[in-house]
Write a protein that binds this DNA or RNA. Sequence first.
DNA 1: CTGAATCCTCCGCGATACTG
DNA 2: CAGTATCGCGGAGGATTCAG
Lengths: 126, 126
Amino acid sequence: MVTKQFTGLPEDSDLRRADSLAREIFSDVANKWALLIIETVADRTLRFSELRDEIDGISHKMLTQNLRMLERNGLVERRVYPVVPPKVEYTLSESGRALRATVDAMCEWTHLYIRHIDDARRRFDE
Amino acid sequence: MVTKQFTGLPEDSDLRRADSLAREIFSDVANKWALLIIETVADRTLRFSELRDEIDGISHKMLTQNLRMLERNGLVERRVYPVVPPKVEYTLSESGRALRATVDAMCEWTHLYIRHIDDARRRFDE
DNA sequence: CTGAATCCTCCGCGATACTG
DNA sequence: CAGTATCGCGGAGGATTCAG
């Protein structure tokens, strides 16, 4: 994941491109709202409003913005029903489910160390 | 990880506290710079300037800010040598190393799906 | 070299209103 | 109900300076 040195040699150009792409993807994905959305959808099929109701504190705008980004990267699938009022459902794609596994691990980590971290904070804050 | 409903019942207060604490920790940790720092330190011992040189694009301020936050949460250990000019080394703590394992998984995920994601993007962008 | 503090800019993000 | 667009503000974060 660590960015390779820029050598200036032409034969590295594709490597550098792949690397900056990786960084780009990482930046997209390594943010609070994106990960919370993925963790919330999980293996379910949720509508926009259901997502907003479940993800505590997310704004309308942040939700659409992040859903759009996740859809663009192919992590969530968006199914639109041509009815009125509109109905749109979101699910995780295969890559999204794979990512979810790692997010699950992060959540487990949080619960495993929450006490430990709380203590560290208190010590630090004196 | 999903936030529990607010019921208003007093006996839930400690659960709600633990939950908001988990969200707080998650918000601290689920951000690009924090994860990149953890991934960069890895199992090494690095000085401030070495970190800044290795993490492409991070500013002086962002690095200190995130290091301070990671130290507060007990994820990195900071060792100060009383010499002049100052020398400060950073390493991952046990909890930091545990978190790193999950970040590694995220990086592996990136490399595994990078092609897939790149295709999805092109399709989305038409 | 590390890190805190100040200033200043820009844009992330919320609020709101409007379409279909 | 879902989504886009606009506006406006507060704060994130860069550049710079100072201190130890």
